[in-house]
Amino acid sequence: MGLLDFFRKTPSSANVAKERLRIIVAQERSTRGAPDYLPTLRRELLEVIRRYVNVDPSAVQINLGRDDGHEVLELSVALPEDARSGSSG
């Protein structure tokens, strides 16, 4: 560390690397071990839902978790504000 570095305020590149890795590793670990069919399941469910409600692709979340030794497949669909009017026609 030289005299000039003393006045530098930007985070070190090592810290930037560490933060980026912390985020991406956590994200990749959360999907690790999930069955290979999850992305297909998600896409097909989305197609069915969109026949009735016009939802955004990102509005369908599928998670596989564990609860007391049982595997739980959790499906959450965020309906848009005007979903009711849209589904009547």
Partner: peptide, 9 residues
Amino acid sequence: NGEMMSVAD
């Protein structure tokens, strides 16, 4: 020098 992640990191 802060250019490389440490063992601890």
